[in-house]
Write a protein that binds this DNA or RNA. Sequence first.
DNA 1: CTGAAAGCGCTAACAA
DNA 2: TTGTTAGCGCTTTCAG
Lengths: 330, 330
Amino acid sequence: MTKKVKLADIAKLANVSAITVSRALSTPDKVKPETCDKIQRIAAELGYIPNLMAKGLKARSKTIGVIVPTIINPFFANALKSIIRSASKTGYTCLFFSSDESAAMEQNAVNTLISYNVDGIIIAVISEDEDYRPSYFATLAKLNIPVVLLDRQIEAPHSGGVYLDNVDSGYKLGKTVAKGRHQRILLVSGSANSKVANSRLAGIKMALEECASGAQLDIIKADFNSALAQQLTAEYLLGNQPDAVIGLNNQITLGALEACVQHGLRPDQDVAFYSIDEIATAKHFGVTIPCIKHDVEEFGYHAVTQLIRTIESDNSEKHAEIIIRGVVMA
Amino acid sequence: MTKKVKLADIAKLANVSAITVSRALSTPDKVKPETCDKIQRIAAELGYIPNLMAKGLKARSKTIGVIVPTIINPFFANALKSIIRSASKTGYTCLFFSSDESAAMEQNAVNTLISYNVDGIIIAVISEDEDYRPSYFATLAKLNIPVVLLDRQIEAPHSGGVYLDNVDSGYKLGKTVAKGRHQRILLVSGSANSKVANSRLAGIKMALEECASGAQLDIIKADFNSALAQQLTAEYLLGNQPDAVIGLNNQITLGALEACVQHGLRPDQDVAFYSIDEIATAKHFGVTIPCIKHDVEEFGYHAVTQLIRTIESDNSEKHAEIIIRGVVMA
DNA sequence: CTGAAAGCGCTAACAA
DNA sequence: TTGTTAGCGCTTTCAG
């Protein structure tokens, strides 16, 4: 077992001081080219890996923290992936945490990120209920650590946010549904005080009303997970026979879908499905689910860009909101 | 904007020295109860959050690093989730990185973890090809940082590993397939030099031979992603008509499934599907895919437990391998 | 262009 | 039980 190689080790071999080595590796222009070359060669030979702990103790850490409620949901998994990619392009490292849908773990993750001296945080909070007011936002504000909200908007001091245009998504999907000339439409929504759900719902209603299709619209309030959607849909099906089902997010659609097939209804044939958020696996099963697809790559990109801009322009820039619009995939 | 609260701040208010505060918060038994209470109260009031950078500069970081090739694959997403849960129960923090299936990013992630002074690393390497010999293993060995391999076994110095019993999984699935009395079975495998794929394949062959079903077995070598499996299956279907398809992992099964439905074959009815790894979404579509399901929770648990044991028993313990067996889900 | 000194926040080691 | 000193590895002054 060897000890970790440090600046002093390289310095000794190169007959210079540690600070020169530091400069050769971080700000090469400040060192005479020959010296610089020699140092870099020695560093490479020794397999030098800088100690971020020591570095971060003084300066900027060049690190951003990311917190999502779950990585099982492909939406967040993809967002995470694009965030990591965008960040690494700009020379930032990402520290990632999952709050596992728990307020305690979310708080915890924030603390850990503060512990690690992150320069900023991108967070998709666990809930967008109106009464969810996590206290860590105040802490972050005090410490001047910028926060970019992802997808879920809440009332809290933060420096920016990247959201979906949920009314627009609903509206577009509604227009698509209207073309289907259905008689009886089941809409499975998210929780009653979710702004995302309500915006999507409003958009859909608007579109359907505009088209005056005359279709009956039944609405179930579930939540953004598949289990409840499945259960409530199953109950609904006992006394009703829709010819179209709309899921307000990917998980809901999957739950409703399951309830329908269990009830003997064949997707596409007996009942048409529509979804906000893509159901990526549908194609594997040969099922067509027209949907509003959101460009998750873009989502991550904007979150990172916005955060880094705020970080580097220090003066707590004007609070910006970026809205991503979805596109219809039929 | 406030500066971060540090030990000295608390110390001043409590009329004690910084080290006492440190002790009150980390090792309370070493401080007089009253003093301890007072300090803890003040710390809480001030919202003290320890600086891990400073802490990690000296001592053990109580942190483990985790690297997986992708989080889009539910297998790894779930593994990650269970690792995080297990680790947090034992008081360790996880730093997580995705190598995005790239050797460079993997190397990078390892370096970053070393930078952060992690006490140990759990890694699912990007490839188990025989010629994949990443150099960082030597580095980690030198630094005495224990490594637990996850799922993918390679020749490299490491202190432990948690793997699936792939021959067993293949065998069990083979037995299940045999019961179906199929005439013509298509098996879509992983890459030719993947030990995981070959073990599963061997197990399946063994089971089928034992049952002397007389079925014809066609084997396609693809890889563990769905795109190639889909493409090769599609080509195969142009000249062949299987009544059963076996996918050697979840991605392969999905790819093969897609090729079949595009070719007009209905799952369950025209062709039976079997898979190693669960296809969780199948139930949403009302499709039954008998499979070998692996307890991913256990996977993560063992990886963490093993790693922490090695970390805490310092003396580079005997190299242990843990094998998880899958169960049939029909 | 290079170096010496100081200090980031925390905690071993050694007093008191 | 508590405090002092020193130092972890690096970088930011300030000098040369």
